[in-house]
């Protein structure tokens, strides 16, 4: 465990090396929030749509912009580059679990983003745009839980893509596809409740909603209290399914690597 936490710390301090970028990242987040808020302002008021007040949508936009910074997005890229450079074999012979190593290293990045991007961005957004408080302590707790699920699912999806890339050898295409699916189905810009009914139905059957719609809606209390449990069960089922797929693919990938000699 200590070894893995060391990877976390290392990833954290690696990121620290580039100081000027912190300010630019804060600016970037501010820009994204500004754009989304302006868009919501432009349409709300002209049309009366349930569950859409400008305060709700502002908070929704802020939460999702910050969440995007925290998710473990770099996993598949990292695996891809060590696959291409061949350094994967030397990583595999180390007496550590490769997936756990990836996870903990990714978490180092997330912690860094939390401290240096998400928290300051939150403060700036709070002062500039205003943020609604969580619907209730229960919803706040549900939100935090959903955040952890989002981290897990984002890791598993990225890891899944990198494993599929063992066969397709085209990580680039796979991650673009994943990106496209996330754009549509995570609901991180347009909440699922504003989707046309069919699309909403599809989105609710997929795991991507946990990377946008679910945490923010829990914070806002849009998801009714009695449904929280159901949402969490769905999330856990998704994590379990992804874990199984990933485990299975990992075994196949290893044997493939052994046969091909990296």
């Amino acid at each position: 465990m200590k070894t893995y936490l060391m990877f976390t710390a290392k990833a954290f301090s690696n990121q620290m090396a580039y100081r000027s970028e912190v300010w630019f990242r804060l600016l970037g987040n501010f820009v994204t929030i500004l754009i989304q808020v302006a868009i919501w302002k432009a349409v709300i008021g002209e049309v009366d749509v349930g569950q859409v007040s400008i305060e709700t949508m502002t908070t929704y936009s802020i939460l999702n912009t910050l969440l995007t910074a925290l998710l473990l997005n770099g996993i598949s890229g990292k695996v891809d580059s060590s696959l291409k450079s061949g350094s994967i074999s030397s990583e595999l012979v180390k007496p550590i679990s490769y997936p756990l190593y990836l996870l903990f290293e990714g978490l180092g990045g997330s912690v860094y983003q939390l401290v240096f991007t998400a928290v300051p961005s939150f403060l700036i957004a709070w002062l500039y745009f205003g943020i609604m408080p969580p619907a209730s302590p229960v919803f706040l707790a549900a939100y935090v839980t959903a955040l952890l699920m989002a981290l897990a699912i984002s890791f598993l999806l990225g890891y899944l893509v990198s494993l599929i890339a063992f066969w397709f050898m085209n990580h680039f295409a796979l991650s673009w596809m994943l990106g496209g699916l996330l754009t549509i189905f995570s609901g991180s810009f347009l909440p699922l409740w504003l989707f046309p009914p069919t699309w909403e139905g599809v989105a609710k059957l997929l795991p991507f909603q946990f990377l946008g719609y679910v945490p923010a809606s829990l914070y806002l209390g849009v998801i009714p209290a009695e449904s929280i449990l159901g949402v969490f069960i769905a999330g856990i089922i998704w994590i379990a399914i992804l874990l199984l797929i990933v485990q299975w693919l990992w075994k196949k990938a290893i044997s493939r690597l052994v046969i091909q000699g990296g």
Binding site: V47, A173, G180, I184, L190
Partner: peptide, 21 residues
């Protein structure tokens, strides 16, 4: 193909947005 899907995603989100408003 993958990039077409990805940008298709962008178009779809904007389309859904305007469907609503």
């Amino acid at each position: 193909f993958a990039q077409i899907i990805a940008y298709g995603g962008d178009y779809i989100v904007i389309w859904m947005f305007i469907q609503r408003f």
